[in-house]
Nucleic acid binder design. Sequence first.
DNA 1: TCTTGAACCTCTAGTTGCTAGAGATCCTAT
DNA 2: ATAGGATCTCTAGCAACTAGAGGTTCAAGA
Lengths: 141, 141
Amino acid sequence: MLSIGKLSAATGVKVPTIRYYEEIGLLPEAERSAGNQRLYGVMAQERLAFIRHSRDLGFSLDDIRELLSLSDRPDMSCAAADVIATRQLVSIKDRIMRLQSLQQELERMLTQCAQGTISDCKVIEALSNHECCLHTHHGEV
Amino acid sequence: MLSIGKLSAATGVKVPTIRYYEEIGLLPEAERSAGNQRLYGVMAQERLAFIRHSRDLGFSLDDIRELLSLSDRPDMSCAAADVIATRQLVSIKDRIMRLQSLQQELERMLTQCAQGTISDCKVIEALSNHECCLHTHHGEV
DNA sequence: TCTTGAACCTCTAGTTGCTAGAGATCCTAT
DNA sequence: ATAGGATCTCTAGCAACTAGAGGTTCAAGA
């Protein structure tokens, strides 16, 4: 059995984050030692690694909750898991496109700036009026 | 003079967000009508448009605070503004690269999945053990 | 002029995914 | 036996808003 600190070292998930995952029900309540400290077995470690990896791939905790409950039902069709992963892929592609348009806009601003004073700085000017944008970009990135 | 609703419509910034910006000092305190309702002039509208556009480009409110204070000093060198914009550009490029590696990973997961049951779903499997990743991906995206 | 209803006001609390700190307790190594 | 690191619970804070309650003001139609 691992203490929370060892589990943290083993999975790369910080100690308060592990407690947080337990609090929101993503991890089951841990066993406790005689002195009330959390103890983890192999199952918990695997589950946490799953969460960690999914987070690395950008899944939301809600998505992960669903993926975890799917992984607990091995006989089910994996279509639902594919839906979640595909949704995530679409959202990542979308964010990449948005970010690329922002990148272009920023590069344009910076190449036009002649390093003079604020009054003729193209960066500040470009921020002041959206009209001079080549692209429209709205919503979060 | 514009009411907060008209200003919102003119700039595309939601009404509660405008009040929020005032609360955190990004916008100056608005004038008030006899009945205590906010009134905005052209200056406020321009300032809000600046904020809106900067947010669209992914700048943090702290960055925007700095950019705004620069734009109030037209005689200064614009080097500071360039530093902020360059930092933002670097961070955007970095996020794009991270997202592209996630995209590849997800695509790999999905193409390997044969649409069977969860027990042999490559998506779930890939999430379970990080070792089968082609790329290492850590940190936020 | 009155009235209705949309727009406005303030305030609190919620969102996501954690992180930081206080103050107390436990565990382990010397 | 004791020192100090690890753990416990609890509260509060971060970004950047969003939602809702409960109350006031404004503008347009009858």
